[in-house]
Write a protein that binds this DNA or RNA. Structure first.
Lengths: 186, 186
DNA sequence: TCAAGAAGTAGACAGCGTCTACCCAGGTTT
DNA sequence: AAACCTGGGTAGACGCTGTCTACTTCTTGA
């Protein structure tokens, strides 16, 4: 494991333990036991390092989607949706970083390929449900985009606190069920 | 207009013109023509100033919802949904600031009252549609939360670029229509 | 053996939020 | 009239940040 990879894993651990505001170049360097300028020997700037960290996040998210239990297409799509929410709630800091354009570089090749792979997998799962007669005439990527956005907003607002502060729902599962019901029917 | 209010309006203008990364205390002070320490005479910290700015955003958003054209409850809800997306796309920097809990203070009284007022208005509009037999047995706040999250995610992902980069949809209106269709039927 | 390159160090720079000491004009109190 | 308080502004400092540069050290291949 070279120093570049060690910096990524150190930063990933620091992110999950201390949050987004802790993954500064100097903080990562200190956690890795090197001087404050060392990380820039391996990354052109902070955004490039954090892009590599976010890529780890998208990779983990993708693995969740690729290891869904064998079931009907519909149940697999529902499981993927729940998996997205689960990932966000289990890794709130990583989830935030993955969509913070001021911290990462969206043009980063590894990052954009992984994030679009997540979307493509999602669209594939949608397409398989369409094969059973669910909205057969709509572009699967269009449905995937809408559904993904709904999940993304639910995770984001839940972590933001705008939903949990209101006392009408103790967990995300309840509004999630409403969302899934809206798209996939009762 | 006292100096406190002048700082808020200066910061709001700076935000819309230069984006979130431009609304630093020193940048706002320079734009207002005062010394770098002056803003802290009127706000205890940067987050309090930015919370006041974000409150302006929630107030504007609330006004949109309160000035919907007279129509059926269903069309008014649809108009409110479109209004939310319109607001986000017309004021991307403000929209980002309003949900950046590292920049603002969610506990800020004025801010939290305005943001919850937005949600309450949304729940009221949902309730009026329910009065016409749409999901009559579900808590309107629960439906409002799910629907709001879907819109929020759509706006966020669109501004993030994850949707527009894919060539399957040239505008937000198309995935928005899919979302509205899922919740409110054809 | 020696040159090259990879990796790390230390110092500097500007910009940031925040704190402190100081200043000054206007109105209030004595 | 003199003293005082206070709202508003200024200037300097502190530690933090990302980034740049010059200098070192170590390893590796010719």
């Amino acid at each position: 494991m070279g120093p570049r990879h060690r910096l990524i894993t150190t930063a990933t651990a620091l992110l999950s333990e201390e949050g987004v505001q802790a993954v500064t170049l100097r903080g990562i360097a200190k956690a890795a036991g090197v001087s404050h300028g060392a990380p820039l020997r391996h990354f052109t700037c902070r955004a490039e390092l954090l892009s590599a960290v976010a890529t780890v996040g998208f990779t983990n998210l993708l693995e969740r989607g690729e290891n869904l239990p064998e079931s009907t297409p519909r149940d697999r799509l529902v499981a993927a949706c729940r998996g997205y929410i689960d990932f966000a709630l289990a890794n709130p800091a990583m989830f935030e970083l993955m969509f913070r354009h001021d911290l990462i570089d969206p043009q980063n090749p590894g990052l954009s390929s992984k994030s679009s792979a997540v979307f493509e997998l999602f669209a594939k799962l949608v397409g398989e449900v369409q094969g059973e007669g669910w909205h057969p005439d709509t572009d699967s990527r269009l449905i995937a985009a809408s559904l993904w956005a709904s999940l993304h907003g639910l995770a984001g607002l839940w972590l933001w606190g705008g939903l949990s502060s209101a006392s009408f729902t103790p967990t995300v599962d309840i509004p999630l069920a409403v969302t899934l019901d809206a798209y996939l029917g009762a």
